[in-house]
Design a protein around this nucleic acid. Structure first.
Lengths: 223, 223
DNA sequence: TGTGTTCGTTAGAAGTTGTAACTCATCGCG
DNA sequence: CGCGATGAGTTACAACTTCTAACGAACACA
């Protein structure tokens, strides 16, 4: 089991308490939202005194940062596993939706209203581009390989795709054609649009089925 | 000037102080976000003591509710004015974008991560459907009037539009055809998807121009 | 078995929301 | 004009939050 064998007892205990704290934090976030996360309440729930938690997290911000990191990791792993099992872009969409519905607060922690002073650490942006990479692979599988002549024609018809091609630093060195870059961005923004409005409860009251809206948007997206 | 003439001096003073409080609140939200809004800080900025503000707002929640109401009102008026001046759906999209970019925190107050215990009062949902009405009018102007034969054909091709037609309570009694209902929902979710990710800063680092992504999504949406 | 690291505790500072009670200015009415 | 009711602003306080400091006790390791 990798690290836990080589660790000293103290380190193992420390890691265990850290995860226990995070579990209580998730539970608290799920009921009251991230803004209501209270270190004192977690301590009380664990039966220890308030300042004890500061041995494990420098403060509320570091705890939240850790939760964000875990959430990104979970999403990247979930999408990555689905892709490894052969899911196409449509499959990834449904996996994403399931992941978001399983814990709306976790989704909002990643893609909701940004925390005022918070700045994402480097490794979360790394995980974020890992997600983007699996997305790009699925998108590239849907976009037909364009011969040169057709590519030139596309350049005049799809100005945004060529714009993305000129600023493709965010795609890393992923070998996705311009149309796939465009498809990935549309996928991201549209799925997020439907999901975030649904999770925020903006569709309650309207009586239609959010499932069908999601399916319709997905259908309109796929080439 | 309507009400302010008939009001007693006390009431006029009260209304003035209320708007002054709200102005400071907006200023504070713009710099630190809604979650960091502090009645004490507002009081200090206004040169009065903390509890003095409780004469004007029952608490933090009521102040935020009032700010949300004002934000909805502002958005509805802005879109309504644009529509009255002849803006089509594309024009409304750009007006919406301008409104959101002018004060991102205000946008997130309406469409961002929901506040845990908060439940929107009735009149905000009324304003919300006012917004939806101007949207539906603009959408209806874009979809062609369908003869009966064509409508029957559409019913099999556009299942979500017919689903919306069966659950069109949210559209009030607006006489928009099913295709317009569908277009309005797509408009809402897609524009929100691009805007909220942009405003949350998820595109910083990627070097492309958010303006062009917005334009591309809008272009893909219009029939 | 000692020794030093680390954990958890209590005490306290500085901040927040919100309530209670009191003073005092002001508004309206006789 | 004067007097009484209304309401604004004050201080004091309770209960909460994050977070620091100092102390005792438990534990791992040599």
């Amino acid at each position: 089991m990798g690290k836990s064998d080589t660790a000293t007892p103290r380190e193992r205990y420390r890691a265990q308490v850290r995860t226990e704290i995070k579990e209580h934090a998730w539970q608290q976030i799920a009921t009251a939202g991230a803004s209501a996360l209270s270190l004192n309440a977690i301590a009380k729930q664990m039966g220890v005194s308030g300042p004890a938690l500061y041995r494990y997290f420098a403060g509320r911000d570091e705890l939240i940062t850790e939760l964000i990191r875990d959430a990104y990791r979970s999403l990247a792993d979930t999408l990555g596993a689905a892709a490894a099992e052969g899911a196409d872009l449509s499959g990834l969409a449904h996996v994403l939706r399931g992941w978001a519905l399983a814990d709306p607060h976790r989704y909002f922690l990643l893609y909701g209203t940004p925390v005022p002073g918070y700045h994402a650490p480097d490794d979360t942006t790394a995980i974020s581009s890992e997600i983007m990479a699996t997305l790009l692979t699925a998108c590239a599988a849907l976009v037909p390989e364009a011969p040169e002549a057709q590519a030139a024609q596309e350049a005049t018809e799809a100005p945004f795709a060529t714009h993305l091609e000129k600023h493709r630093a965010w795609a890393g060195d992923h070998p996705a054609p311009p149309a796939a870059l465009h498809l990935a961005m549309s996928f991201w923004t549209r799925m997020h649009g439907v999901l975030s409005l649904e999770l925020a409860g903006h569709f309650t009251g309207m009586r239609f089925d959010p499932d069908r809206l999601f399916a319709a948007e997905l259908d309109a997206l796929l080439p």
